[in-house]
Design a protein around this nucleic acid. Structure first.
Length: 109
RNA sequence: GGAGUUGGCCAGGCAAUCGCUGCGCUAUUAGUAGCGGAGAGGAAAGUCCGGGCUCCAUAGGGAAGGGUGCCAGGUAAUCCCUGGGGGGCGCAAGCCUACGGAAAGUGCCACAGAAAAUAUACCGCCUGCGCAAGCGGGUAAGGGUGAAAUGGUGCGGUAAGAGCGCACCGCGCUGCGGGUAACCGGAGCGGCAGGGCAAACCCCACUCGGAGCAAGGCCAAAUAGGGGUUCUACAGGCGUGUCCCGCGCUGAACCCGGGUAGGCUGCUUGAGCGCGAUGGCGACGUCGCGCCUAGAUGAAUGAUUGCCCACGACAGAACCCGGCUUAUCGGCUGACUCCUUUU
């Protein structure tokens, strides 16, 4: 489930497709392990408090769990952007839904 | 009723469903599944102090450097806390206080002012000379400057003045009384003896080895040849975490795995929490009974829905405790002070 190794992260950053909406970017590429994996790269600059970073990760992890059955085997890294810290619960969800849509479209191609 | 001082507590609640991480039990060939139960804070933060724990090459002596600085107590310990003393603020409850030493030495004291500490005299006052302007002498009471000006007030004294003399206050010394002490009270004597700053250097007293869980330990692909234990002289060389003395290595003998990626461990039962009794003004101590209350490691507490209300602030454990400091929407509550009103 989790994406752990620094080298795995490097692989995603080097050759990835991109999907973005508002304050969130998904980077993803197919993997060999047979199931989707999730990793985070949330900048302290974008979300200054540990509370805020945890909150975002939990929301993303929850939506990943809900999508997991429909996903192909990809490695996915979630990046934050400026402004994400101001989002409330519903805004974050709307944003995430949009990114998932784009991501799945690209996977089908 | 109003204004205020001070201490303590809470940090949205309830229900349903789907998830995450340990733990216990059961099942299971490992994976895992089911059930039960647990799962962030008052500051988890800043890392400013103090300890525990771990390792390092002597952690020993000396120097340097750092810290603390009224007294007594509490504690594992402290720069913390409690009680007391002095000083300051407030009508009061109460609050603040780095609060040892300035004739050991060095340094600094802007502007203003005559003068900022070796002293000195701008205006003035008194006096001598002179027609006068002024010059010489005496003086530091009055004015002026400043954050601060060589004791304060009063009387005597004098040409005018001055601790020059006297009284009281202040200051110093010596007894006495109270207090564990800091200190307080009072007596006698002295004589006015040259300001402030030591969170400036410094002096004095006490005190401090260093690094930190990425500490340290174990299992172990790769890669390189070394690593460990014991004994030991001198000289030289090398090393040494502030420096020196010193110490260790380089020598000999014996033994054999070594340890990067990665994994495991350290990792939560502890100066623990709650209740009661008891000693103490109090911080806190002692005794009895009961309880087990996060342990993640790309890092677990979330999401959805419904209802209620005061419409929810600051904010996330990372080895563990005791403090301090900083951030914080609000709510509850104890004690006390002052003013006003009514009986």
């Amino acid at each position: 489930m989790h994406l752990l190794r620094p080298k795995d992260f490097r692989a995603v950053f080097q050759s990835a497709r991109k999907a973005r909406a508002y304050g969130i970017i998904f980077l993803f590429r197919p993997n060999d392990v047979g199931y989707p994996r999730l990793g985070f790269a949330v900048a302290k600059k974008h979300i200054p408090t540990a509370i805020g970073r945890n909150k975002l990760k939990r929301r993303v992890r929850e939506s990943f769990r809900l999508q997991a059955s429909t996903l192909p085997a990809i490695d996915l890294v979630v990046l934050s952007q400026k402004g994400i810290d101001d989002f409330d619960k519903t805004e974050t969800w709307r944003c995430l839904n949009k990114v998932w849509q784009k991501c799945l479209q690209q996977c089908e191609q």
